[in-house]
Write a protein that binds this DNA or RNA. Structure first.
Length: 883
RNA sequence: GGGGAUUUAGCUCAGUUGGUAGAGCACCUGCUUUGCAAGCAGGGGGUCAGGGGUUCGACCCCCCUAAUCUCCA
């Protein structure tokens, strides 16, 4: 049975049983503490923890997941994949153990005709938590499983918690017996390769306390609402049902493996090592495909780094298979074709996905060739010293600094007949890990506790009225002072206020929060910040200016009107710039983040090179033409699929509800999903002036702009600058640039002439200097104070010139000058003088010490200086002595 | 978030306890030749990423900033 069919049967089965089908959430997790969605239940965490009331009693999903913790194990075992799909059914205070077990059994063993999987009940084993007799009796009753195929396991295997205080509970797992060919008898307790875990049922029953590890915590109490969370590994079931050996050989993955084998002219099954490499390629290509599909782009940290690693490990594996040429152009379409039955959006976005992958492959191939040069040098050096081993720190440097993978280093070293100090390398890697981990631990202490908000969120969603009005009558539902629930806050205190409804916009979608006041009877609260700490809940951070605020009090929210006008201009302006950007650069230039507040906007977008001045001007022009065009701005609500159909731009990394708000500017000209506040016609934006374009990391650029009156002020300031320049240069505006260039050119020429003139004039003094030579200890010494000179270069030129002209007989030229009010000297010796022991560097040191400074150089020429120019005569004497 | 590396002529890069910034390619001029990366001679081209500090003197040492590459979390 095809993987896509198992998936569909799953969803249909649970929908028939009253579950709401929830589409897979993005791989980019909404929870900022998680890099990716790592399990089927991740999107449901707020409902499980009670932070947000669940909108349904029971739900089911097939969730895309990425886990890279065991990335090194990929390909070596049957069941480690970096991308996988988890089928889940969930109950939020609705059904519990009995139904969960019943559904699981029915779906696995029910007949194919009835939409189930038709697995042989004789091959299924289950495990339960050691003292969970309730589950055992349900299993006996519902499935009639003999006791021999039910095993009890401890905390480590069959108890679930998040690792932190919160919900916890026992699990029951279902295993499939692959038969005696795959290992020992005795159930999952004996052999988890023969008995493959396919489904984990988690009974969220208790609340746990503080503690570390999997088993050292206290069970505090029963949960008031018990939940069910189950996860069936889609890939595992697929490989069992398709009668293949592991998850790399299922219909969604195998075609890539075959394509990699063809490209490398290897046959799968011929060599253990090559098989692992082929599986790595098959797994990583699929994971990368899915990640890029969800909007991740390669980067040097965070999610982007995980993607980069996957892509680079693929290139590396292909290299080890003997293919040095680019391969992504072949591999990615194969993976896409295998996955598109379940994920049709991959086909739609494939141009972008492939471009992203190809760009990274090209970058990495460049990195590799740079690393190869370095590695060859390092290996040659090792050989030169007669050693047989490349040091660990050299291998680490290659890996850490040049991104050259260790196993390629091993391979190349081996070809050169050398070994590599792997232990040294590992030690350095461990050191680096510890550094990063120590740092992460330090930072984590600042994590915020959101539990204080859950009670308020349970009262319902804060109604936002700010689209229609600036002022709204409301009621204080709650106060938080210093992170704790409070009944009252008085003058001078800072508090968070939860209201029944509000006209204040909370920071989101890049738009900064509104400013203004919350007013009541004798009460004045200045709003400092507005946030949504929990989905649906708006919290106002305020400073109490006058009076005292208490829970239950009637108040009215009053947003600063000027502020809001500026905020609307800036946010609509951001949409206009985004649309202009895409019009000029093409649809690849997609916004990856933004920030706007009155007068200012910032837009980060995916693009891999700096924008030229012309391109920037063009974007600015398109932007301002759209403003001048007085385009209508409208907002409408629709479902997410409808919005997609409508052509609205959804941003990656953002998560959207089922019902979304689409902002249109000029109809189809700009359509974006957005919850922000906007002007009603584009002309109200006024003016936009781009002020900067910069990089925010590889593959991502940032545009900054001023909006409205701020834009005007900035342009006015530049105009004033040009006015001052025309005045200073005495040239009309059109000629300023030319005049400036010609002035610089003239200045350069003049300087060149001047220095030529100077050295010529200095050259005329050479004969006089030579004739002034005095013989000291058998050496001719030419020493003089030349007075003020322009530069040390002149002095040095004169000294070496004099030495050349002075003939082969021994001579020491020591000339002094005052340059920029400081005494300087240059000493030169010829070969004969050096033979009789005169060293320029030594002489300079003696003389410059007298001048209150220092100096040095080589035996033939040296220079020095000091700070007291009245001592030059003394210095000449000392130098004469020193010869 | 924490490390490492790089930034020098239009391009690719040298630059040795701190003492006149170079090479190859490209460009311009001339000569020699008329062909496959032609040769010879001459020449132009540098805020040594930016800013600050130490020093008589900084491409070089110290500090800060930026960009790019890279590893780890």
């Amino acid at each position: 049975m095809q993987t896509a069919e198992i998936r569909q049967r799953w969803l249909d089965f649970f929908e028939r049983n009253g579950h709401t089908v929830v589409p897979s959430a993005s791989l980019i997790s909404e929870d900022p503490s998680l890099l990716f969605t790592v399990a089927g239940m991740v999107p449901f965490i707020p409902y499980m923890s009670g932070l947000v009331p669940a909108p349904f009693d029971r739900a089911t999903s097939v969730q895309k997941c990425v886990r890279t913790l065991d990335i090194e194990e990929v390909g070596k075992t049957t069941r480690h994949g970096t991308f996988f799909q988890m089928n889940g059914n969930f109950s939020f205070g609705d059904y519990f153990k009995r139904e969960a077990i019943t559904y699981a059994w029915e779906f696995l063993t029910g007949s194919l005709d009835s939409g189930c999987l038709g697995l042989d009940p004789q091959l299924l084993w289950v495990t339960v938590f050691e003292n969970d007799d309730e589950s055992i009796s349900i299993w006996r009753e519902v499935a009639d499983i003999p006791m021999e195929r039910i095993q009890r396991r401890g905390m480590k295997d069959n108890y679930w918690s998040t690792g932190q205080p919160g919900p916890a509970g026992p699990c029951s797992e279902i295993y499939y017996d692959r038969g005696p060919a795959y290992g020992r008898e005795g159930g999952p307790e004996a052999d988890e390769d023969r008995y493959i875990e396919i489904w984990n049922l988690v009974f969220m029953q208790f609340e746990r306390g503080e503690g570390t590890g999997k088993d050292s915590f206290e069970i505090l109490r029963e949960l008031p609402k018990k939940n069910i969370d189950t996860g069936m590994g889609l890939e595992r079931v697929a490989f069992l049902m398709q009668g293949v050996e592991n998850l790399y050989e299922i219909d969604q993955v195998r075609p890539v493996l075959d394509a990699a084998a063809t490209l490398s002219k290897k046959s799968y099954g011929a060599s253990v090592e090559d098989d692992v490499r082929l599986r790595v390629v098959a797994d990583h290509v699929r994971s990368a495909l899915m990640l890029i599909g969800d909007g991740v782009t390669p980067a040097n940290d965070g999610r982007g780094y995980v993607l980069r690693r996957l892509l680079r490990r693929t290139v590396r594996a292909m290299r080890l298979l003997g293919v040095e040429a680019p391969t992504f152009a072949e591999l990615f379409p194969v993976s896409k074709n295998a996955m598109m039955a379940a994920y049709p959006e991959l086909d739609r976005d494939f141009d972008r996905i492939l471009r992203t992958a190809l760009a990274e492959e090209e970058t990495f191939l460049r990195t590799l060739s740079a690393g190869t040069v370095f590695l060859d040098e390092a290996l040659a050096e090792v050989k030169a010293t007669g050693s047989k081993q490349l040091a660990g720190d050299a291998a680490f440097l290659l890996h850490d600094t040049y991104g050259f993978p260790i196993d390629l280093t091993l391979e190349v070293a081996e070809e050169a007949g050398l070994t590599v100090d792997r232990d040294g390398f590992k030690a350095l890697m461990a050191e680096q890990r510890d550094r990063a981990k120590a740092d992460a631990r330090e930072k984590k202490l600042g994590g915020t506790d959101l539990s204080v908000y859950s009670a308020f969120r349970a009262l319902g969603v804060t109604k936002f009225t700010g689209y229609e009005e600036l002022s709204t009558d409301s009621k204080v539902l709650g106060l938080i002072v210093d992170g704790a629930d409070s009944q009252v806050a008085s003058v001078g205190q800072i508090a968070e206020v939860i209201l029944s409804e509000t006209s204040f916009y909370a920071e989101s979608g890049g738009q900064d929060s509104d400013a203004g006041f919350i007013l009541g009877d004798g009460l004045k609260l200045e709003v400092l910040d507005v946030q949504k700490p929990v989905k649906g809940l708006i919290s106002h951070k305020v400073l109490v200016r006058e009076g005292e605020v208490t829970v239950g009090q009637r108040v009215s929210t009053s947003v600063d009107a000027d502020w809001r006008v500026g905020a609307c201009q800036a946010h609509s302006g951001t949409h206009v710039v985004h649309a202009a950007l895409r019009q000029v650069l093409g649809p690849d230039a997609l916004q990856s983040g933004s920030y706007n507040k009155p007068g200012y906007l910032r837009l980060d977008f995916s693009w891999n090179q700096a924008l030229s001045l012309e391109t920037r001007s063009e974007i600015e022009e398109v932007t301002n033409l759209a403003i001048r065009g007085d385009l209508a701005v409208s907002a409408q609500h629709m479902s997410l699929p409808e919005a997609r159909e409508f052509g609205a731009v959804a941003l990656f990394g953002e998560t959207y509800d089922e019902s979304v708000r689409v902002i249109q500017i000029g109809g189809p000209w700009s359509r974006e999903l957005c919850g922000g506040t906007h002007v009603s016609r584009s002309s109200q934006i006024g003016l936009i002036a781009l002020t900067g374009e910069s990089s925010v990391g590889s593959g991502s650029r940032r545009l900054e702009a001023l909006v409205g009156i701020e834009a005007f002020r900035s342009l006015a300031a530049e105009r004033a600058l040009v006015a001052r320049m025309t005045e200073a240069l005495k040239a009309p505006r059109e000629l300023v640039e030319e005049r400036l260039a010609s002035t610089i050119e003239e200045l350069k020429n003049a300087q060149r002439k001047l220095s030529a003139l100077q050295s010529a004039s200095l050259a005329t003094r050479v004969p006089e200097l030579i004739s002034s030579a005095k013989v000291v200890k058998g050496v001719r010494l030419i020493s003089q104070n030349l007075g003020a000179l322009e530069s040390v270069d002149d002095l040095r030129g004169l000294v070496s010139n004099t030495r050349e002209k002075a003939g082969a007989e021994s001579v020491v030229v020591a000339l002094f000058a005052v340059i920029a009010d400081k005494p300087m000297l240059v000493v030169a010796t010829n070969e004969a003088a050096r033979k009789s022991g005169a060293k320029a560097g030594q002489l300079v040191r003696v003389a410059s010490a007298i001048l209150g400074g220092g100096g040095g150089g080589k035996d033939d020429i040296a220079q020095g200086g000091g700070s007291d120019s009245t001592k030059i005569t003394d210095a000449i004497e000392a130098l004469t002595e020193a010869i």
